[in-house]
């Protein structure tokens, strides 16, 4: 039976998720619920509906096809009552204007491979394919299958992971992955639990498991004002870097309140607030400190 996974997007010409030109496959579903998540549509593994108000032309096609009467056009307004929505997605095919769209579609390993191989002419020696999400390793067997096909075609492979996955697969995953973009969100155990919903024990265990497999690791450290930009965490980043054998770099990724429109389109309350945006000077200080500790560090914009 073909293995199917929910894919929210296959993004070509990505230059931020690994080296060179990459195609990034975003899988839907994540075990974490980070307060600052900017891809809320990738949290739940089940399919959801995006509703983009500005695209709606008030044609009413959705209202006529929805079996649960969730859509209505009332005095030039599209009212979408999600409480009865069974996520049957019928309204999506009825909508001509892409105001309603399904967040993900199920794709087989073959479909995914075919799609990502479309840009093989641009990967060269550095670029390639990155699996991301959500948490791609919620689907370890599918990921292993996709990446092993890509490896057999000589494509550079990377996985962007929050580190919270079933440890028994670490070795097999590392066999087919050239680079891990490994999130190291917070070293404070309780704070990690508070802001992401889980403790970081398993994550740290998996980090060292992967490190023992010998593949390159980039530590991706999100920087959030008022949350994790303290001295302890900064020192811990340096310490972890030095205890890892194959960590090639630390990326500092400043929090951006980008995800708000996605929350709205999912029918959720926008979560993001500007107070969490880190100050450029504080970021530079952290960067300089890490550099002074002998850590190769790259500060993203």
């Amino acid at each position: 039976m073909a293995m199917l996974v929910p894919v929210t997007e296959i993004q070509r010409f990505s230059t931020h998720d690994g080296d060179g030109i990459r195609t990034v496959v975003f899988l839907k579903g994540c075990p974490l619920r980070c307060e600052w998540c900017h891809n809320p549509e990738t949290q739940n593994a089940y399919n959801e509906l995006f509703y983009t108000d500005k695209n709606c032309i008030l044609c009413g096609q959705c209202a006529s096809v929805c079996p649960n009467h969730c859509h209505s056009i009332i005095s030039d307004n599209h009212v979408f009552d999600r409480s009865n929505c069974k996520r049957c997605i019928s309204c999506v095919s009825g909508c001509p204007a892409n105001a309603l769209s399904a967040v993900s579609k199920m794709m087989s390993v073959d479909d995914i491979v075919n799609e990502v191989m479309k840009d093989s002419a641009f990967y060269l020696d550095k670029g390639g394919v990155t699996l991301s999400g959500g948490e791609p390793l919620m689907y370890p067997l599918e990921c292993i299958e996709i990446l092993s096909v890509l490896k057999s075609k000589g494509v550079h492979t990377a996985i962007e992971t929050c580190g919270f996955f079933d440890s028994q697969y670490a070795g097999r995953i590392a066999d087919v992955t050239d680079l891990f973009l490994f999130d190291f969100k917070d070293s404070d155990r309780d704070r990690h639990r508070k802001y992401t919903g889980v403790y970081n024990d398993k994550i740290i265990e998996n980090l060292y498991l992967l490190d023992n497999c010998g593949k390159d690791i980039v530590l991706r450290c999100i920087m959030i004002n008022q949350v994790n930009m303290d001295e302890n965490h900064t020192r811990e980043i340096a310490r972890v870097y030095h205890t890892l054998k194959h960590c090639i770099r630390v990326d500092l990724i400043p929090y951006h309140p980008y995800g708000n429109s996605k929350y709205t389109r999912l029918g959720l309350q926008p979560k993001h607030n500007k107070e969490l945006i880190p100050d450029r000077r504080a970021l530079s200080q952290i960067k300089d400190f890490l550099a002074s500790q002998g850590v190769p560090v790259y500060l993203h914009n």
Binding site: D19, G20, I21, D119, A121, F122, L124, G127
Partner: peptide, 15 residues
């Protein structure tokens, strides 16, 4: 942007 941006443009040209 950055070093990888240079790699990206070069890769586009080569492709």
């Amino acid at each position: 942007a950055g070093e990888n941006g240079t790699v990206a443009i070069t890769s586009l040209v080569k492709g």
